[in-house]
């Protein structure tokens, strides 16, 4: 009897260890192999500045309320309230200790596209690496080069304020297993270079889906609801549907969408509002062809 019990216990232990190992294997942080970030050469700073605008980095990483050139100080500190707790945006200025000045391209790139931090830890998807995962290695290299040209800040942002179990970073491996993907979000005609470019900008650096797509209880995107609109994560109001089936922009022509992104005015001369104001200012900095590509893509996705 005693022997049986011991056998049972030891097989349970073995099972537990195997399950834990399997769990770890499935959910461990997975940076790119080092070769992914090699041989990229000198960063193209001008392109990096465009990726920086497309990515909307300042919207979260600038000091809250900063205007003009002060926005280029990526000191962090903005609190992001979410159903999972409050995230505090980190300092990503090129400061060697408080910022990312001491990071290598591979460390920066794996944070951007794999959600893996400098210490090899999982990052919280409040940092939209689930979108940035689509960035090309070249764009990441150029972006990193550009960020290094910006002013340093010694500001140390507070750490995240999250209740259990969301404060356990290991659990993020499970989140990634369920929801992390660098595959296209929808099928569009990518033989049209304009639509392909739009898909890259919207699904990748633009990270439009992070607000415009509804999420399930675990914070993953609801399937089949790409860009269909969602509750405002910051509180009251709604983030609109931006598919061709949208009541607000479905009737807009591609030209009108591009014009809205450039000027901030709708075809009826209502204006951009809320968090989209910052986004629109960034979109206005892109070449006209990029805004047209975004519009073409938004016209090509499934109507919801």
């Amino acid at each position: 009897m005693g022997q049986r019990l011991r056998k049972l216990v030891s097989s349970l232990v073995v099972f537990g260890v195997v399950a834990a190992a399997a769990g770890w294997f499935l959910t461990k942080p997975e940076p790119w192999p080092a070769s992914h970030w090699e041989g990229l050469g000198e960063a193209d700073i001008a392109n990096g500045a465009l990726v920086f605008s497309a990515g909307g980095c300042v919207s979260c990483h600038a000091v809250p309320g900063a205007e003009g050139d002060a926005k280029l100080v990526l000191a962090g500190g903005l609190p992001l309230k979410s159903p999972f707790g409050t995230f505090h945006v980190p300092n990503i200025s090129p400061d060697e200790t408080a910022g990312i000045g001491g990071w290598t391209l591979a460390e920066f790139g794996d944070a951007m596209t794999r959600g893996v931090g400098k210490q090899g830890e999982h990052l919280y998807p409040s940092f939209p690496y689930g979108s940035y995962a689509r960035l090309t290695a070249k764009d990441v290299n150029d972006l990193f080069g550009y960020i290094k040209t910006l002013p340093k800040s010694a500001n140390v942002a507070p750490s995240h304020d999250l209740p259990f179990p969301f404060n356990i970073r290991l659990s993020l491996g499970g989140w990634k297993l369920l929801f992390f993907t660098d595959k296209p979000r929808v099928t569009v005609d990518t033989s049209d270079p304009k639509i392909a470019r739009g898909q890259y900008l919207v699904e990748g650096p633009g990270h439009c889906g992070e607000c415009h797509t509804p999420r399930n209880a675990l914070g993953g995107f609801e399937s089949g609801m790409w860009l269909a609109g969602a509750p405002n994560p910051e509180g009251e109001g709604r983030i609109p549907n931006i598919t061709p089936g949208s009541k607000s922009i479905g009737a807009w022509s591609a030209g009108e969408i591009a014009s809205y992104l450039e000027t901030g005015f709708t075809p009826e001369f209502d204006s951009v509002g809320g968090s989209m104001v910052e986004v629109q200012k960034n979109m206005a900095k892109l070449p006209a062809a990029d805004r047209e590509a975004i519009a073409a893509y938004l016209k090509a996705i499934p109507a919801l």
Binding site: N232, R238, G264, F265, S271, V272, G273, G274, V277, Q280
Partner: peptide
């Protein structure tokens, strides 16, 4: 004139 519109709507308007 234009930036006044977005500047105010950014903070003081909620889209339903």
């Amino acid at each position: 004139i234009g930036p006044n519109c977005g500047g105010c709507h950014e903070v003081y308007r909620l889209k339903k």
